[in-house]
Design a protein around this nucleic acid. Structure first.
Lengths: 146, 146
DNA sequence: GCGTAATGGTTGATTTTGTAACTAACAACA
DNA sequence: TGTTGTTAGTTACAAAATCAACCATTACGC
């Protein structure tokens, strides 16, 4: 980064990443909160089901790196809002398969469109190559275990 | 990003940024938690005082984009741990100037060294040029108002 | 100066998260 | 079959974040 006596907090990657993440999430956050009254974990679960179709809580947790208690609560809320239904697996009754209802899918479609246009906006603000490079670097960091 | 029917959540910038931020913060988080029992907001306040010297809560909030209630509580905790002292401004008695105690500075020095070595580690994991490009892109995003 | 608005900071009530312990169901192996 | 160990998911309680209302003090308009 730089010398010991000239530490620049705003270049410290974990800090900088958090600032950028927060700033870039703000608009989208307001959208899903205002339109559907859902939380961060909830839209993430919604998106996972929207994209990958039927999943169980465990799978979502692994893919999105979300703790199972968070998912459990998010699923409860989404069920209350009639955005998804649960079906116990017939051969392994510990498993619950989650599927979006038409309402859930409608919400997902709406938010996905928003996410896409918002993402384009962000990409445009950076350069076109810069955005691609950014994504690559971020994926490297995100995939670093520990 | 890509076509409507092929939305890749893991390329959606706000999502990807959050994943990267979380992953990259984990190690450092454990360090300040384990060594000093402090919270995210608390190390941030500590660092601001360590870097910029005497500040008041408002200034820290502006620079770090932290809400004033969070800062107020972080300052209380840091004061309890004897990491900082407060002095009411003589001409404007609403203002409180915060300064690190020697203990606070020692903790800051320790954590700063850690942050630096950790940051180098992260930069090395990416390419050398890649890290610089990443920082630039992140700053752009972080500085985007709204 | 006096009333009103704005500012720095704190507090309290509510919501959300984190941690651990828990239930129910299945697996493995004697 | 019975005992022990795992696994999927929930719940309970403590810790933390959020939001609004709240002092005390200073600034502004007249």
């Amino acid at each position: 980064m730089q010398k010991k006596d000239a530490f620049d907090l705003h270049l410290f990657l974990p800090y900088l990443l958090n600032q950028a993440a927060e700033a870039s999430s703000l608009k989208f956050q307001r959208a899903y909160k205002d339109r559907y009254g859902i939380l961060r974990t909830e839209w993430r679960v919604l998106f996972h089901l929207g994209i990958y179709g039927r999943m169980n809580a465990k799978e979502i947790g692994l893919r999105a790196r979300i703790h199972k208690t968070k998912i459990s609560r998010a699923v409860q809320k989404l069920e209350q809002r009639r955005f998804l239904t649960r079906d116990t697996d017939t051969t392994d009754r510990r498993l619950e398969w989650l599927t979006l209802t038409p309402q859930g899918r409608a919400a997902y479609d709406d938010l996905r469109a928003l996410a896409q246009s918002y993402d384009s906006e962000l990409s445009a603000a950076l350069g076109p190559g810069e955005a691609a490079a950014l994504r690559q670097a971020l994926q490297k960091l995100a995939d670093m275990a520990e």
